[in-house]
């Protein structure tokens, strides 16, 4: 084991060099570049046109979601109109009655929240091990974990389900249908990418820092929590956002692994398409309600995200 240690330290030495660009700086400062010469007019016009088109392309579905959620059912199922004929907030009141949306919302929140917390904690430990330690099997571990990213979900949907059921049968812990099963599943889905990003981030944190902490008498975990984790905040935020989003949006596994009690928003929204008709205005209203927290959170944290990616994934 000991013979791998110099390698690690050698890496650190190189990493110390561009210390000025450590992520902590990037997190606070929005890098603003101004060229000494102003860009040519043609460039400015290209920029205007391309970005405007892109903005329209991006925003249209969001606008449709919003405007349709304010329409009456007749209006929304009739020919398309850009603006609601009669503005109504009724869909926002009805969505809670047509399906138990509040329960689905709470389920999604519980599942995504728990999966995210667990995933980030576990990923931090794993990434710390990979980044700061050289040990046998390190490469096998990283390659294996990362390669799971290419597994088609459909291949292990049924096996995973059966495994949960068997665990339930042998241990008496009812996993199938429980939020716990979904939490375990989602947290594992996000682990590979999270570990990968955090390793990249941890690698960019000067090793001096935690070694100083080690010298000061902190254990390796003390160094991790007192030094590395605070320094890696943007990376951890990025991973948190990524994990939460993944868990909040997953459809396939939720469709098989939940029941009426534990159904998440992803599946619950199907409930607005009923035997008699599709309540399109309610679908849109409920979609917005399901989107607002995540989009708001994402936009609030996007600066961290960019900084986290800059230092983590991008390197």
């Amino acid at each position: 084991m000991a013979d791998t240690a110099p390698t690690a330290d050698a890496r650190t030495a190189v990493r110390k060099a561009p210390g000025a660009r450590t992520p902590r700086v990037g997190a606070r400062r929005e890098p603003v570049r101004r060229s000494p010469t102003a860009p040519p007019r043609s460039f400015v016009w290209t920029r205007r046109i391309v970005l405007t088109l892109l903005a329209v392309f991006t925003a249209t579905p969001v606008y449709v979601m919003l405007s349709s959620s304010l329409k009456t059912l007749d209006d929304v199922t009739g020919s398309f109109r850009w603006f609601p004929g009669d503005l109504t907030v009724q869909p926002y009141l009805d969505i809670w009655e047509t399906v138990p949306l509040a329960r689905y919302f709470l389920n999604s929140l519980t599942v995504a929240g728990a999966a995210t917390v667990c995933s980030v904690v576990i990923a931090v430990f794993a990434a710390y091990a990979v980044s700061r330690h050289r040990f046998r099997g390190r490469r096998v571990f990283t390659v294996t974990v990362l390669s799971t990213q290419m597994f088609p979900g459909i291949l292990f949907l049924l096996p995973l389900f059966l495994i949960f059921v068997n665990i339930g049968n042998t241990t008496g812990i009812a996993l199938y249908g429980s939020r716990g099963a979904l939490i375990l599943t989602y947290l594992t889905f996000t682990l590979p990418f999270s570990i990968w990003m955090l390793v990249g981030y941890f690698d960019s944190i000067p090793r001096d820092l935690d070694e100083a902490a080690l010298v000061d008498g902190c254990g390796p975990l003390g160094a991790l929590f007192r030094v590395v984790v605070p320094a890696a905040t943007p990376g951890i935020v990025a991973v948190t956002v990524y994990s939460f989003m993944t868990a909040w949006g997953e459809v396939l596994f939720a469709s098989v692994m939940t029941n009426g009690e534990t159904r998440t928003l992803a599946i619950g929204l199907q409930g607005y398409a009923t035997q008699t008709q599709v309540y399109w205005n309610q679908v849109m209203a409920a979609s917005l309600v399901a989107s607002v927290p995540i989009v708001a959170g994402f936009l609030l944290l996007q600066r961290y995200l960019v900084a986290g990616l800059t230092a983590g994934a991008v390197k």
Binding site: C118, I173, G177, G180, L184
Partner: peptide
């Protein structure tokens, strides 16, 4: 401290599985 941390992780992952009672 390390033991505590590891225990916490284990507890976290266990907590995730511990909802609901068993049925044979």
């Amino acid at each position: 401290r390390r033991t505590a941390a590891v225990a916490a992780v284990c507890a976290l992952s266990m907590a995730a599985t511990a909802c609901g009672g068993g049925t044979s």
